[in-house]
């Protein structure tokens, strides 16, 4: 049955939504259209924009730094998103155990997610300092023993060459932010530190799983692991889905931590997508390529989200 919408209701509804409707026009639709337009222009903001067709997009095809930024972001998203999801689910399961002072543990795990990212970046930059940082200070003696006592004798016993054994004896701590691969690893690692909010969402989801289901399954003799995969996980799938979407959107926009911590280096090994857009737009005033890249970013995110939604039919279970 369709209810009749009175004129008064229609006006009231639109009036209440007016701030957003104006906002959509001013801060969403118009900028979106302008950004699309500029992506086909040569534009520095100091001179009028001129139309240059597909040139910006064509140039991006052969822009090495752009490829690096795209690739780095793909790597980051592909590793960080699933691992943070798994880690926060594990943490949530652990924190959901009925033990004493569980609240304190939860608070401790949650706190880092409140720390402004600029501060996080500085804290970790200091921790990852190759020479004076806490992480390598702890790693060095461990690696020393590991190399001399375990790896080298083991390799020797397995008949490895003299050079290999010798290099294993002198295994050293990574230089982290000074090494292209380890710098990326460090930035991914930092994303694990800020999972607090995801953990809390999972915790809430876990508490919504009906106790009776678990009890019934236990009576049927199902083990803990069986129950996790057949009850907890399906019941939790909408929450996992939500966190997945948020993770995808967030990881493609990573900016603060690498900008402050490495500035994209060493080389270009931690140059991420949003950083390169920022660099093009505000360090070089190349607004055209910046907008073109931003639109490509938008399309990638939309595509990945659509993919997630399409797959959701197969694995997300709505009670």
């Amino acid at each position: 049955m369709r209810e009749r919408i009175t004129r008064r209701e229609q006006l009231a509804g639109m009036a209440f939504a007016a701030p957003y409707l104006i906002g959509v026009a001013a801060f969403l639709v118009y900028p979106l259209a302008m950004s699309l337009y500029y992506s086909f222009c040569n534009y520095s903001m100091l001179q009028p924009a001129i139309w240059i067709g597909w040139t910006n997009y064509r140039h991006l095809l052969t822009d090495h730094a752009f490829h690096t930024a795209l690739w780095n972001t793909i790597i980051y998203a592909a590793i960080s998103v699933p691992f943070t999801l798994a880690l926060s689910l594990l943490l949530a399961l652990l924190l959901n155990q009925p033990v004493r002072s569980a609240g304190i543990y939860r608070t401790i795990v949650f706190m880092p997610s409140l720390v402004p990212l600029v501060a996080s970046a500085l804290i970790w930059q200091w921790l990852f300092n190759a020479d004076k940082g806490l992480i390598n200070a702890a790693l060095r003696p461990m690696l020393h023993t590991l190399g001399r006592r375990i790896l080298a004798p083991l390799a020797g016993a397995l008949g490895a060459g003299q050079a290999t054994v010798e290099s294993l004896r002198h295994i050293t701590a990574p230089v982290w932010l000074g090494d292209p691969h380890w710098a990326m690893a460090a930035i991914i690692f930092i994303s694990f530190w800020g999972v607090g909010q995801t953990v809390v969402i999972f915790l809430a989801g876990l508490q919504d799983v009906p106790r009776e289901l678990h009890e019934a399954a236990e009576m049927d003799g199902a083990g803990a692991i069986h129950r996790f995969f057949h009850i907890t996980l399906p019941m939790l799938s909408p929450v996992i889905f939500f966190n997945l979407i948020m993770g995808i959107i967030g990881s493609w926009q990573i900016f603060d931590v690498p900008y402050v911590m490495t500035g994209g280096g060493p080389g270009r090994s931690t140059l991420f997508y949003s950083m390169y857009i920022f660099e093009a737009a505000f360090n070089q005033l190349r607004m055209g390529p910046a907008c073109a890249m931003a639109w490509i970013q938008l399309l990638i995110i939309l595509f990945l989200t659509a993919l997630a939604f399409a797959s959701a039919r197969k694995w997300v279970y709505y009670a």
């Binding site: 020479d131 004076k132 390598n136 050293t172 932010l177 000074g178």
Partner: peptide, 10 residues
Amino acid sequence: YQEVDSFQSG
């Protein structure tokens, strides 16, 4: 270079 890098970061 690893040695120098570690040295420099200090």
